[in-house]
């Protein structure tokens, strides 16, 4: 089961288009869209009010809280989930479990009703159960000639909690920490990336939080919007997770040294 989400700030708005068909063409109109967000330590779930036709649900994310996430389900599945008093996101149905290509919504951002950019977006339920770290380059998708460069780091965690952790900007070549930020679970964390940070050796690293890194560049009301992949996807053999762990340990060592120098820890 996949979740869908939007992003927004004072410049950018977004629209989420959720298909009522799988990518092999199989339609099923029995599902509705529901939205969920953590509230007072519980998942608050409501049927989403949005436009729809026989092929899609159309969500104008400006009408929703930044923390709200969306999923497809039947009324019965949602009622059973609420009655069960489970307080964790659960797999309610398999309609959005497709392979080899994942079931995706289109997440389109726009600015001043002019420029727009989109990608095919999903957040798989398996990922909501995991904690971990992400390492990703900053300069691949950002542009130092743009007026503004933003990193949105989206996390969905199965428990309705907001757990804070650190996100670091790391110079992998000179082995030093450039800056640090706080990120939270169940948030769309927004970080403005300064132009001087957009260098070929600069990466960002999250200490304890998995998520999807989304990069936005803005110039003259034109937009670019795309996500990066987790590092293990670049390696193909069975030892790839070990190799990625080694690389992440290198970054942790840089962070430990930085913490010692700055905080005396």
């Amino acid at each position: 089961m996949n979740f869908f989400f939007g992003i927004k700030n004072n410049l950018i708005s977004s629209n989420i288009t959720i298909p009522r068909f799988q990518n092999n063409g199989y339609h099923n109109e029995k599902y509705s869209v529901y939205d969920a967000m953590p509230k007072d330590g519980k998942w608050s779930i409501n049927k989403t009010i949005c436009q729809s036709d026989k092929n899609f649900f159309y969500i104008d994310f400006s009408k929703f809280d930044k923390k709200q996430i969306f999923f497809l389900a039947t009324e019965l599945q949602v009622n059973n989930f609420i009655m069960s008093k489970q307080n964790i996101l659960s797999n309610l149905n398999n309609f959005t479990n497709t392979s080899p290509i994942e079931f995706r919504s289109n997440l389109r951002i726009s600015i001043n009703k002019k420029g727009f950019s989109s990608y095919q977006s999903e957040y798989p339920i398996e990922m909501t159960r995991k904690k971990g770290s992400i390492l990703s380059p900053l300069s691949s998708l950002l542009n130092s000639n743009s007026e503004q460069n933003l990193l949105f780091f989206k996390n969905i965690y199965f428990e309705p909690i907001f757990e804070k952790s650190k996100l670091y900007i790391v110079d992998m070549l000179n082995r030093k920490i450039i800056d640090e930020f706080e990120v939270s679970t169940n948030e769309t964390n927004e970080i403005e990336i300064k132009k001087e940070f957009i260098k070929d050796s600069n990466y960002f690293f999250t200490e304890k939080t998995l998520g999807i890194p989304l990069f936005v560049s803005i110039k003259n009301d034109h937009l670019s919007f795309e996500h990066t992949h987790p590092p293990h996807l670049y390696l193909l053999n069975h030892n790839r997770f070990n190799k990625v762990s080694e690389l992440k340990q290198e970054v942790r060592n840089i962070i430990n040294l930085y913490n010692k120098e700055t905080n005396g820890i």
Partner: peptide, 9 residues
């Protein structure tokens, strides 16, 4: 034949 329908409008 395989069908691939892009999930966007």
């Amino acid at each position: 034949k395989q069908i691939y329908q892009v999930q966007n409008n």
